[in-house]
Write a protein that binds this DNA or RNA. Structure first.
Lengths: 232, 232
DNA sequence: ATTCGCCTACCGGACGAACGGTCAGTGTAA
DNA sequence: TTACACTGACCGTTCGTCCGGTAGGCGAAT
């Protein structure tokens, strides 16, 4: 095979993209550098040249994933002001990532436990995880303080939400019957009605909050476009 | 080290136990047979002698895990009759496994996606997963039919519950401040109040259902005892 | 305009380690 | 004598990593 190399155009991004796809499909340990090199028509040495080692590649995938989630979250925080809508937006954003940022999302959710305990590059990513969680906890606490939410433990409420959303990669399929918007609406009203105490007047509030939340998250700057349905 | 080998006592169970612990801690691919052999003072050949290959060991761990969950679930079904209490019991059972059946639970939740797509030993385990899900869906549907629950999509409600519970291994620590009973009570009332429409009169119903559920699950025959708090 | 050195992407073979798995053989209880 | 848990040397493969070398674009010096 003749390699046609566009001058000055590094394969860095391609490598990272294919790497994330493989990690998503087979997990980190079962992803081999030689396989990725073969897919891209590169040599294994090139990959090492760009990233140093395999661990740093995973770190970079995870780091970029966090970057996107934080950008989203900060946009949500900036554009929306009531906790109800903010929380709905977080739920939708986390679920939309399953469709629009699929490879990185699955690669992250499959492998982030690697950073649970110390060692190597884990400090930074562990910090980011705590940061994100605290942000959601803060939203819930603001809701509680404002009398909108009722939760005896905002930390557990947040873990409830994260579990509900972050487990979706194990069952969600883009080609499935339910759209992400339907799923997010269902999940968000589930938890929001619970948090609101589900007084009947809050029903319309929740519906409205979810609509606004979805519309807002979609407007996130530099947002990855929804992935087209798989051709195969 | 001198190996004291009790005659006729096969190491099968020990091997499987240590294997599950290692898979829980490091994942399937990063668990090596030689390491397990060393820990137990055996040779690698012995492990292969008992199980044939590594894949079958994982299969057996997962299979045994399902066995225990189904035994629990069937006991719940037998002892309890209203969907409210049954669902609370399922939530508690899934969470209690994180403490009382810890290694197998984490090993399962880390690795069950391996069986998502076809190949090898996956058919049976995939079937069991569907079976378990359908059972929970059936409970919700019975609740809906009886007017106790309100859910426009029992399938999604079940996925909500599974996500909430099955994500716990990523954050739950036995030595943590919250007990499994507290967590389960919090999570169960979250979803049950949502499903009940959270009319105020259902609040006491839900509390009572959860208490009954916990008391019942604990009585499950052949239940593994709660693991003692780690000494180290 | 040509030459030069430098930077960087990339090659591709070699490496040592570790892996899962094989197999002929051993010792002991039944 | 049979049955079986178990050994330990061994095999083929694959892994991540290393490294000397090549090629081409580019800015500076000539």
């Amino acid at each position: 095979m003749v390699t046609v190399r566009t001058p000055r155009a590094s394969s860095r991004d391609d490598i990272l993209r294919v790497f994330a796809e493989h990690v998503a499909r087979k997990g980190y340990s079962d992803t081999s550098l030689s396989e990725i090199a073969t897919v891209l028509g590169l040599s294994k040495g090139t990959i090492v040249h760009h990233f140093g080692n395999k661990e740093r590649m995973l770190h970079e995938v995870h780091s970029a994933y966090y970057e996107r989630r934080f950008a989203e979250a900060e946009f949500i925080h900036r554009e929306l002001d009531d906790p109800l809508t903010q929380l709905a937006a977080i739920v939708y954003a986390l679920l939309a990532a399953h469709r629009d940022d699929r490879a990185a999302t699955i690669a992250f959710l499959r492998e982030f436990v690697r950073y649970a305990e110390g060692g190597g590059l884990s400090e930074e990513l562990r910090g980011r995880r705590i940061e994100y969680r605290d942000m959601v906890v803060a939203i819930i606490e603001r809701g509680v303080a404002g009398g909108v939410f009722h939760s005896s433990d905002p930390g557990l409420s947040a873990l409830h939400i994260f579990g509900m959303c972050n487990y979706a990669w194990t069952w969600y399929r883009p080609e499935g019957a339910k759209s992400i918007e339907e799923i997010a609406t269902f999940f968000a009203s589930d938890v929001l009605l619970g948090l609101c105490g589900a007084r009947s007047e809050s029903l319309t509030d929740v519906d409205e909050a979810i609509s606004t939340a979805i519309a807002t998250v979609i407007r996130t700057p530099n947002r990855l476009p929804p992935e087209p349905p798989a051709a195969s």
